[in-house]
Design a protein around this nucleic acid. Sequence first.
DNA 1: TCTGGGGTCCTAGGACCC
DNA 2: TCTGGGGTCCTAGGACCC
Length: 398
Amino acid sequence: MDAFYASVELLRYPQLKGLPVVIGGGRRKVDEAIRDLPEGRTLADIPVDAFPRLKDYTGRGVITTATYPARQFGVGSAMGLMKAAKLCPQAIILPVDFDQYRSYSRQFKQIILDIAPVMQDRGVDEVYIDFTEVPGGQREGGRVLARLIQKSIFDATGLTCSIGVAPNKLIAKMASEFDKPNGISIVYEGDLQTRIWPLPARKVNGIGPKADAKLERFGLRTVGDIAAQDRDWLIANFGKATGAWMHEVSWGRDDRPVVTESEPVSMSRETTFDRDLHAVRDRAELGTIFTHLCEKVAEDLQRKGYVGKTIGIKLRYDDFKIATRDQTIDRFTADGKTIRQTAGQCLKRVPLERPLRLIGVRVGALVRADSPEATAPATSAPRARTPSDAAALTASLF
DNA sequence: TCTGGGGTCCTAGGACCC
DNA sequence: TCTGGGGTCCTAGGACCC
């Protein structure tokens, strides 16, 4: 989906069309500004001048989506709001409304499923679709079906998407970016050298900032640069699995199927504070937030019908370093109190000297609540494999 | 002016078991 | 006399993705 969150917001506020708009934070200041918008007969009547601007925003957070006009200014997703404010102070900022995006997400996915039933969920705004067995799926290399999907989604929702059609997921994903927004790209096997090899290595799904930097150190910039390397050389320098994988993807090879069903592995909740908090000085506030996160995870598990038995915490310190601790208990649970108690144990094993920026709670090793394992008698408790961290404040702070 | 929230998968070492 | 071999589970960290 093209600029998904922003596009959904423009459905509500069509008067913002063509303007630089960013969706981000969802933090208090933006929420308040939106709440204070003047009354209009409809949302579309609210004057553009009444919307909050990036330059008036001070606080934490990142941009989740920027409209294409905003991108003209160099503003993009994952960018800090303060930095974005420098690049495009006049941009309108709106808070994230996840419920709304999820609702549109369900809609567009259902529309696709009705046309092409072999679909893999890739998050709120992206899917893989297997055209192979869809009637007409091969016409014009898939372009006819791609157009049908685009039109069906647009007619039902007013949202646009970009589609890449290729012999496998790897290439299709890259192709989907060739003609954004509202574009269709067909890439054939024989197009590898002309259309894929010139791309920066970073465009490969799975090559992130770290791998890209390392490739760069070897002077490898493009997918073609990787393809030109010896398989054994790649393995020697990037490891057996990664090296072999890089060799395969650089030659456009990918045999992963489109997976239509999957079970969640973990569920978590985390929050970044408006200001850094200290375990001792801000103990009460932290304790409240911590308990709340545990309750939220418990609600999520119960609502979706899962139980888990590995409970963990995540801390992000003011220096952005992350620490995690987890503990596996002897039975599956979705109970807030149990999660809170076990997470509290984890907290005692982690250093708490530095100010904290974020705290999170996670439940993993999930099974369906109605599965046999979920209700089976408690397994023998795993022995403690959790040596106390010498640096930890062992006092029971929470 | 620092940098969200919710995920998945991989690696690696240690404990433990047969 | 230094000290097998394989497998699973648990934990911590990290890369990456949407």
